[in-house]
């Protein structure tokens, strides 16, 4: 994904700067965040495989790779400081820098959620869920759906950042009800009074994993909000989603 972020795309909102180095700096910053986003998706999928299928090597791999996302987050901060200090961004550039700073925070926190899921896989191994993973096909299927939904939203939000694409961002908002729906299903399943084959500790681990996946979807929505902020100049946080989607589509003549 980072490879798609050509230097020329830095100016896709309003054309290139007279000072080309400025474009390169913004492209570098965005490239770091896209790279972080791609790694978070890989981390999440590996962590969920570790929980669902009991692949503990995947869990260890997630823990090993986590610092790379943290270091990229520090690189993003450094680039942001540099751009602010050297370029004094205004208008759309200011929005881009501010939004990328917030997005970097959301991506980094989504990476932490993947680590949390991986840790649950290791705990589950310790407390009796062995090779082969969760002993319930229904729950496996639920967690995979939740993983697909969260990762789909997250990937779409990162693609939206790559081009500051409003339509992709709106698509993330439209996916939210599905995310909450699957998340509720997982919670209901794990909340059954007579859930056979699971100890309370195991249920806590699985609930923690499901909750972390839901949070990754929430981070995707936060990222999508920032894409709208850059492209439209509107801060749409805390707005009613349905009205927002309708208004933005109408304003854009769609």
């Amino acid at each position: 994904m980072a490879g798609d972020n050509s230097l020329a795309s830095a100016g896709d909102i309003a054309g290139g700067h007279t000072v080309r180095r400025y474009d390169q700096e913004l492209a570098k910053l965005r490239g770091i965040i896209l790279d972080m986003g791609q790694r978070v998706i890989e981390q999440t999928q590996a962590a969920v495989a570790a929980v669902v299928d009991g692949e503990v090597t995947q869990a260890y791999r997630v823990l090993d790779r986590e610092p790379q996302i943290d270091f990229l987050s520090l690189d993003a901060d450094e680039e942001i400081f540099r751009v602010i200090a050297r370029r004094q961004p205004t208008a759309v550039d200011l929005r881009i820098v501010l939004a990328l700073s917030r997005i970097a925070g959301d991506v980094e926190r989504a990476g932490d959620k993947a680590v949390r899921i991986a840790r649950q896989a290791l705990v589950l191994r310790e407390i009796g869920i062995g090779q082969g993973g969760i002993p319930s096909d229904a729950l496996k299927e639920l967690l995979r759906r939740l993983d697909d939904q969260a990762c789909c939203m997250f990937e779409r939000s990162i693609q939206a950042v790559a081009a500051f694409d409003v339509e992709l961002a709106l698509g993330v908002f439209e996916d939210e009800p599905r995310l909450f729906g699957v998340s509720d299903e997982a919670r209901d399943f794990l909340g059954q009074e007579d859930l056979a084959g699971f100890t309370p500790r195991q249920i806590v681990c699985l609930l923690t994993s499901a909750h972390a996946l839901e949070r990754i979807g929430n981070h995707a929505s936060n990222i999508a909000e920032q894409v709208i902020y850059v492209a439209e100049g509107k801060d749409i946080r805390y707005r009613n989603r349905e009205i927002l989607i309708e208004t933005l589509r109408r304003d854009r003549g769609l």
Binding site: G11, A14, G15, G16, H17, T18, V19, Y22, R87, P89, T90, A91, V92, D93
Partner: peptide, 13 residues
């Protein structure tokens, strides 16, 4: 206005 944006962000010309 796009011209304003281009000018103040250094994209003018």
């Amino acid at each position: 206005h796009r011209l304003t944006e281009d000018y103040i962000t250094g994209r003018f010309g």
